[in-house]
Amino acid sequence: MGYGMMGGFGGGLGGGVGWIGWIFQIVILVAVIYLVIYAVRSFSGNTKHRSSSSDEAQEILAQRFARGDISAEDYKSMKDQLKN
Rank of each mutant, 00 (worst) to 15 (best):
M1S: 11
G2N: 02
Y3P: 05
Y3I: 15
M5K: 14
M5H: 14
M6N: 14
G7E: 03
G8I: 15
G8C: 10
F9L: 04
F9W: 11
F9M: 11
G10V: 01
G10I: 09
G11Q: 04
G12N: 05
G14M: 09
G14C: 10
G14L: 02
G15L: 11
G16M: 04
G16I: 00
V17C: 00
V17Y: 03
G21L: 06
F24R: 09
F24I: 10
F24L: 12
Q25D: 01
I26F: 02
V27S: 15
I28K: 15
I28M: 13
L29R: 10
L29S: 07
V30H: 02
A31G: 02
A31E: 08
A31Y: 05
I33R: 03
I33A: 08
I33H: 10
L35P: 15
I37C: 06
Y38I: 01
Y38S: 08
A39V: 09
A39R: 07
V40E: 03
V40H: 03
S42V: 03
S42F: 07
S42P: 15
F43K: 08
S44M: 11
S44V: 12
G45Q: 10
N46H: 00
T47A: 02
T47S: 11
K48H: 13
K48M: 05
H49F: 15
H49E: 15
R50M: 09
S51R: 12
S51M: 14
S52R: 14
S53G: 12
S54L: 14
S54Q: 14
D55C: 13
D55L: 03
D55N: 14
A57R: 03
A57D: 01
A57C: 08
Q58G: 09
Q58P: 15
Q58E: 02
Q58W: 07
E59C: 03
E59W: 13
I60T: 13
L61I: 11
L61S: 05
L61H: 04
A62L: 03
Q63W: 00
R64G: 05
R64N: 05
R64S: 09
F65G: 08
F65S: 07
A66Y: 07
A66P: 02
R67P: 00
R67L: 04
G68N: 07
D69I: 14
D69N: 01
D69C: 11
I70C: 10
I70P: 09
I70V: 08
A72Q: 12
E73C: 03
E73V: 07
E73W: 06
D74C: 09
D74Q: 12
Y75C: 02
Y75A: 01
Y75S: 06
K76Y: 05
S77D: 01
S77W: 00
S77T: 09
M78L: 12
K79M: 06
K79D: 12
D80W: 11
Q81M: 04
L82N: 04
L82V: 06
N84R: 13
